[in-house]
Amino acid sequence: MTETLHGLSDLDRVIHEPARLLLVALLSPVESADFLYLLKESRLTKGNLSVHLSRLEEAGYLTVKKTFRGKIPHTEFRLTPRGRSAFDQYRKQMGAIVAGKKSQG
């Protein structure tokens, strides 16, 4: 039980927040995605989405690239190697915690 709790306290808090976890999970299988894709898939509000993306960018987990598609501004988000590694690590830790809890139960 104690080890499980220690595992919980070691979790990456940037990713552990549900909305940010969803965003990182959505970005993980692709090279990059635009704001509209993340908005539609996450179903967050635009303000909320912007805040969480900024938080991930501050942590060095994603990069932002602003371009134009024709005359329309287009913003693409891409997970950095650090972000991918943090996501993989988080999944491993969660898997271990869940497996530990199951074996105890």
Partner: peptide
């Protein structure tokens, strides 16, 4: 599609 639900670039 992209104007409706957004654009993603697949992994190489």
């Amino acid at each position: 599609t992209y104007p409706r639900t957004g654009y993603i670039r697949g992994k190489s």
